[in-house]
Amino acid sequence: MSKKVMIVDDDKSIVELVQIVLKRKGYEVYGAFGGEECIKSIGGINPDILIMDVMMPDMNGWEVLKKLKEDGILEHIKVIMLTVVKEPFEEYSDLSPYVLDYITKPCSNEDILEGVKRLSEL
């Protein structure tokens, strides 16, 4: 069965590009154009892997993860964070066991594919 991947980014072009790239490799891919949309739709999707941008205008990616953790949705999801910052705020340290991969922007399609492949094998 193909793995379900959800990509969350306020930049529509990134969401659409990642969807195309991952679909070509056989993944079932869903997109959300921001944190609130992710929170609304993730329950019905139940992805195996969540690719989360950090800097989004409605909610930052860490706050989205915090909310998903509180709601008990994060427990079986492996997360890849997309960010430009190498040191997230200490207040998010409890999210560390969920964020198994961390990709620094700017990144290539190959970086994202490799990250998804690594986590889909676990």
């Binding site: 560390s96 066991p97 991969d101 961390y102 990250g115």
Partner: peptide
Amino acid sequence: TSSGGIKAFYE
């Protein structure tokens, strides 16, 4: 290790 560590271990 934690975030990013899986890749580091594979390397």
